[in-house]
Amino acid sequence: MTTQEKAYNDYVKGLKYKEIAKKHGVSVNTVKSWQRRYGWKREKGAHKKTGAPFFNTNAVGAGAPPGNQNAVTHGLFAKYLPEETRELVEAFEQKAPIDILWENICLKYAAIVRAQQIMFVQDKEDLTKVLKRTRNGDSSYEEEYELQFAWDKQAEFLKAQSRAMGTLNNMIKQYDEMCRQGLADEEQRLRIAKLKAEVAAMQDTENESVVIVDDVPDEG
């Protein structure tokens, strides 16, 4: 029996969202998402149904909501997708949209932090020499290098970082909007508040590290 099926059985028995979420190790919003997506109802005797529950994602027939295409979809998954990919798709179906967005925010933030080390420029003398190609002749051997100067590397880093931070901030704004719509529980609101503080601190540190060097002699 899947987690959704177990959660459904508890739902029709009258357990609250918070109780179901705690019991099955998912967020409250995930349970609410299942309830909306599969049309769970606490009808009298609903938990005594025989056969597949009406939210079942593996079959279309008795008990399935009208127009349900999950069996067709999963049949296509089974036919065309590798097993690992199919498992990921099925795992995503169990997540609330706000939790999927949070995971993507974390991935983007981790990539930004990691870039600080990968794209670090030591100083203005930081020069990188990269071998691009070699040529072998009958009596000669040539090597062609690309020189990456500190100012070029720094400029590329700033452009890439700016784009990444823009994407991250847009994702955070989308998360905030979902919070305002009542789609987040207390834990989800607290974690985005913590991340926003960390991002703000990182941006302040970056601003402090920017040094403008004016070594042009004064002609006056």
Rank of each mutant, 00 (worst) to 15 (best):
F149K: 08
A184E: 02
R86C: 04
A111T: 09
E87K: 15
Q181G: 06
A160F: 07
N104R: 13
S140Y: 14
R163L: 06
V130E: 15
P97H: 07
W151P: 00
Y175K: 05
K194A: 05
H74E: 04
L183H: 06
K124C: 06
F92R: 14
S209I: 02
N104M: 09
R135E: 14
Q148V: 08
A96D: 07
A150V: 02
E90F: 07
A78I: 01
E143H: 08
N104C: 04
K153P: 01
G182W: 03
P82E: 08
F77G: 04
L131R: 14
R189W: 01
L81I: 04
E144W: 13
C106H: 12
F77D: 08
E198I: 01
K124F: 13
R180H: 08
Q181D: 09
L147S: 06
V89F: 14
K129N: 09
A201W: 05
S139R: 13
E177I: 03
A200S: 06
G75K: 04
L81H: 10
T205W: 11
L127G: 03
D185N: 09
Y145W: 09
E125N: 15
V199E: 03
E125P: 00
E187Q: 06
E142D: 14
L76N: 06
K196L: 00
R133E: 11
Y80S: 04
N136H: 15
E156W: 11
M178L: 11
N136A: 11
T85V: 14
Y141F: 13
F92L: 11
M171N: 05
K153F: 03
F120C: 06
K124Y: 15
V113K: 15
L195S: 02
K196M: 01
L101K: 05
G182C: 02
E198G: 00
G166K: 05
D126E: 07
A184T: 02
A115N: 15
E186N: 05
T85E: 14
Q181Y: 08
F77K: 04
Q117D: 15
R114Y: 12
Q154R: 12
T134S: 14
I172Y: 05
V72E: 08
L168N: 04
S140E: 11
M178I: 01
R133T: 11
E125R: 14
L195A: 02
S162R: 07
Y175F: 09
E83G: 10
Q122P: 01
T205F: 13
S209A: 13
Q161Y: 08
I98E: 05
D176H: 10
N169C: 02
G166E: 04
D204G: 03
Q203M: 09
G137H: 08
